[in-house]
Computed example of a mutant assay.
Amino acid sequence: MTMKMFASDNNSGIHPAIMEAIAAANSGHAPAYGSDSFTDAAIGRFKEHFGENCSVQLVFNGTGANVIGLKAMVRSHQAIICTDGAHIHSDEGGAAEGFIGGKLLISPTKDGKLTIADIERQLPNIGNQQRSQPKAVSISQCTEIGTVYTIEEIKALTSFAHANGLYVHMDGARISNAAAHLGCSLKEMTADAGIDMLAFGGTKNGLMAGEAVVCFREELATELAYIRKQGMQLGSKMRFLSAQFERLLTDDLWLENARQANAMARLLADGLAKLPGVALTQPVESNAVFASMPRPQIEKLQQAYAFAVWNESLNEIRLVASFDTAEEDIAAFLDASAQALEG
């Protein structure tokens, strides 16, 4: 299938440089379960970007990265504060609650961002034995509606959380897109901003498969390897995960891919905003575009393109650009959108 899709950046292919790295790792034998030179090199790259004191566990997917990181922070009688749109709440099949045994405390939001007020509302539960005890805060960077926390917003949240005995987890499935938008380093947005645990995304940014749990708190890192194994996320042929990350984090490939996806989303948004009857519904700060358009137009477009209807009642759609989205892909979709309006 040659048609480019806008349903998800999971639909994209593998970056050629990543494919080459996998092929290069496929030579001879290597020790299993991460005791290999490829994994050593990948972890070295993570430390270059996040600091020497971080701990890294490579896993297969984003759900695994989230629940393993959260389980190191939260016991079964405790709770995680997150938004109603958080992936751990709305799109991971209850994995967090099922694997950890704890509870998610949900805060509604219009822009995808958790606030200090959202956290503060849960604090009276601390010390009440009848209630799940808040112990962690989870934020998504980028959020599920494409918005991006500023570094100042992250620092404010982590300072408040830490002052009240709470850890802070970041779901960074699209963290590279956030860094590209903010023009900052990965470390500035995580370790330097007070994040305790990060799920670092690779699959949505050019990898075949693979995410990473990056821990910035020594007391949380000691159990992660055991939790990863129990969570069925320890790869036996780890070198093929590791080779991908080593290449992604070399020569700013991660940033190049994210910048391309973000730029194509911006181009798409600018074009859609010029069409009659079409309105952007969220700020375009990453690689996702949210827009409303007439229902007949949506139905006609879906005959040729894959994308999500995000909110049926508002006729709101989500369009996601990928590292391999090109200007001609955007032009073709905009032409199709204009034609759907006409006829």
Rank of each mutant, 00 (worst) to 15 (best):
S140V: 05
A72S: 14
M232I: 04
K135T: 12
A179C: 15
G28W: 02
Q233A: 12
A23E: 07
I100S: 12
V278S: 03
L341P: 00
A225Q: 12
T143C: 10
S138K: 01
L241E: 02
N311V: 08
T83D: 11
A338V: 00
A306G: 05
G34A: 05
L186E: 05
G343I: 03
G98Y: 00
T83Y: 04
N61F: 09
V56L: 09
Q230Y: 03
L280E: 06
H49R: 07
E256R: 14
L70S: 07
Q78G: 10
P31T: 09
S76W: 03
G69R: 00
M232T: 08
R45E: 14
L157I: 15
D171P: 03
D171E: 13
T158S: 14
E48N: 15
L275K: 10
H49T: 04
Q303G: 07
L280G: 05
L272G: 07
P283W: 02
P134D: 12
D9M: 06
D251I: 08
G127D: 02
N315M: 02
R174L: 15
G343S: 04
N287K: 02
E52R: 13
S176E: 13
G62P: 03
G69A: 06
A225P: 10
S140L: 03
S322P: 04
R228I: 03
R217D: 13
G146T: 10
A338C: 01
N61R: 10
L255N: 09
R295I: 00
A32Q: 07
S107P: 09
Q302R: 11
V67K: 02
P108K: 03
S140Q: 11
A288G: 03
V289D: 02
E52G: 15
V67G: 02
I119P: 11
L280A: 06
I80C: 14
G64K: 02
R295T: 02
N164K: 09
K135P: 10
N125I: 07
E120Q: 14
L314T: 14
F160W: 01
A72R: 01
M293V: 02
T2I: 12
D329L: 01
E223N: 12
Q339V: 01
F6Q: 09
L301D: 01
V74Y: 05
R217T: 13
A326D: 12
A180M: 06
M232F: 08
A225T: 11
F46E: 04
C184K: 04
C142T: 13
T109S: 15
E92H: 13
K110G: 12
Q297R: 05
E20K: 11
A95E: 11
R45V: 10
L241Q: 04
R75V: 05
I88Q: 08
I119T: 07
I100Y: 00
